[in-house]
């Protein structure tokens, strides 16, 4: 079983205008950099992007926003991107702001074959508008639907040709949940290895969830806020 493709361009070749994409990452950490660059190059537009954040103006999904490729963002926090805020306030960009836990769990539901989940996040707030509320054991919960994404695009640390993935530290974040949830999952990895090199006990995403995998290159791995402490 060989799911390896040569590069990001090949991996995204059938992504079309108007599709819904999940993109992994938290802030600038664990971003599928190669696929984002390929999407910008390809020029696909009218996209609905499900991603926790929108990057910064010149990195991450910010690059796609600059090219007006995104019709709708589904995120929990989009604070560090001035272009995003501008497009939002002007009405050019449709935005669905979703509590971070709800975002992660709606991805998880899709990956676990569950049509909906119940969560207390957003009860009593504008997030609850238009949604079904059910009471369990005296507490109100919102019914939230599983996402339905054409593609999930994730970044992992290591992966093998069968699609098994291992993530590194906090670069895991949404990548592991989204990898399970796309109709087609594309994984870019820092190191592509042969089957058998990854310990089955330590695989974070079993290959069954992954359809295409490639060896990524030239990762910038930008740090959003470099905070340090002094040696005394």
């Amino acid at each position: 079983m060989n799911k390896v493709v040569n590069n990001a361009d090949e991996a995204i070749n059938d992504i079309k205008d108007g599709m819904t994409l999940m993109l992994g990452g938290f802030g600038l950490c664990g971003l599928p950099e190669n696929c984002i660059a390929a999407l910008v190059k390809k020029g696909v537009k009218e996209l609905t992007c499900i991603s926790n954040n929108a990057g910064v103006d010149d990195f991450g999904i910010g690059l796609m926003l600059k090219q007006r490729q995104v019709k709708k963002m589904i995120s929990s926090y989009v604070g560090e991107n001035a272009e995003f805020e501008r497009q939002l306030l002007s009405g050019e960009l449709e935005v669905e702001l979703v509590p971070q836990g709800t975002l992660a769990t709606r991805c998880m539901a899709a990956g676990y074959g569950m049509p909906a989940i119940f969560t207390p996040a957003g009860i009593g707030t504008e997030v609850a508008i238009g949604k079904e509320i059910r009471n369990f054991n005296g507490k109100d919960y919102l019914m939230e639907m599983a996402f339905d994404a054409d593609f999930a695009i994730v970044k992992a640390w290591k992966g093998d040709s069968m699609g098994n993935l291992v993530y590194r530290a906090t670069a895991r974040n949404f990548n592991a949940v989204m990898a399970m949830a796309g109709k087609i999952t594309i994984a870019e990895v820092e190191e592509l290895v042969k089957p058998g090199e990854l310990d089955p006990d330590h695989i974070h995403t079993p290959g069954i969830y992954v359809h295409r995998i490639f060896q990524g290159k030239n990762y910038e791995k930008r740090i959003e806020q470099r905070t340090v402490r002094k040696r005394i």
Binding site: I223, Q225, V228, R231
Partner: peptide, 20 residues
């Protein structure tokens, strides 16, 4: 805590996107 200067790791951040 925050890392010492020179030991920042882009894959190790907190919810505020700071290196830790």
């Amino acid at each position: 805590p925050f890392p010492f200067e020179g030991e920042e790791d882009a894959d190790v951040i907190n919810a505020g996107k700071q290196t830790i």
